[in-house]
Design a binder for these strands. Structure first.
Lengths: 110, 110
DNA sequence: TCGTAATATCGATGCATGTCGATGCAACGC
DNA sequence: GCGTTGCATCGACATGCATCGATATTACGA
């Protein structure tokens, strides 16, 4: 006999990681991580003008990154007068860790 | 006078998230998440042939994703005979969570 | 040694994304 | 009203990346 199998069948995880990948994609940029870190360490909200001043990016690019984070549900923005203030969304960290755990925690399914 | 400030100076996180972004970029793909989930739930290693059989991708594409995960230090591969077996790298989940926490945990630095 | 099977690598292609200048829009002061 | 300022959107451009076919590499069996 030839054809010896490489291994027992094994279980392959089903394809349900689209949402998790979207969330992690929003995270996977150094400038966006820096924005999130600033928001996480600020007790309150942060003005967009502070980001444009601190980041080595032009204003439209900063606005773009804020939009990506907003659409991922990781931050929320609120206009107050001329300025717009951003803050971390509630449970942002927990949602991310849950996405990671959904893939990497060696769990038994029901 | 005009020119009223939008907010007190505030602290902007320094630019040290390049490595974290690289790690998260390796994660931010549904097929790679599925590969990691399979490895996390397998008590032992998994043969490449199982991935090529289970994923809706051609063999070179699977090999590409495994390489990305390998170069990110998330998995390790070992050739045994004709087949190559992959397993989750030690502390993979912890490294990822640490990268997330480095950005999102509201901590005071030393 | 030769053929075959399992992976990895290479080169090309198409799509996604980060970046920027130009412009639009909203809010404020005059 | 008008001008200015802060931010968002648009369009264009370049780069990056996922995907694949073709080919190379490695190991095994006859």
């Amino acid at each position: 006999m030839s054809m010896q199998r490489c291994c027992p069948p094994g279980e392959i995880a089903s394809d349900e990681f689209g949402a998790a990948a979207e969330l992690l994609k929003a995270l996977a940029d150094p400038h966006r991580l820096r924005i999130l870190a600033t928001l996480a360490r600020a007790s309150d909200e942060v003005c967009v003008c502070d980001f444009t001043a601190a980041l080595p990016l032009n204003q439209p690019t900063v606005s773009h990154h804020l939009r990506v984070l907003r659409e991922a549900g990781l931050v929320t923005g609120e206009r107050r007068g001329t300025w717009v203030y951003y803050r971390l969304a509630d449970g942002a960290r927990e949602r991310i860790v849950a996405a990671v755990d959904g893939a990497l925690r060696a769990q038994v399914r029901a």
